[in-house]
Amino acid sequence: MERLPSRGISMILLTVLMSAFLMIYIGADFSKNRIDKRQVSDGIESTWWEKGFVLVCPLH
């Protein structure tokens, strides 16, 4: 039976996880920044995607 390329596939999975983490972190930072700015100026409510990013990110 052929060997699975476990090292190659696990490195790809690591890439996917790192990219997802980076996207969530930056997305949440971006959203929080927009929400904070709006609260200071005119108090408009957050959009669904801004709330989503902040909710999903454990660091925000």
């Binding site: 060997r3 390329p5 476990s6 596939i9 490195m11």
Partner: peptide
């Protein structure tokens, strides 16, 4: 056989 090499995945990565 190519899919079963680690290098195939590393090169995409």
């Amino acid at each position: 056989l190519i899919y079963h090499t680690d290098s195939f995945w590393h090169l995409i990565n």
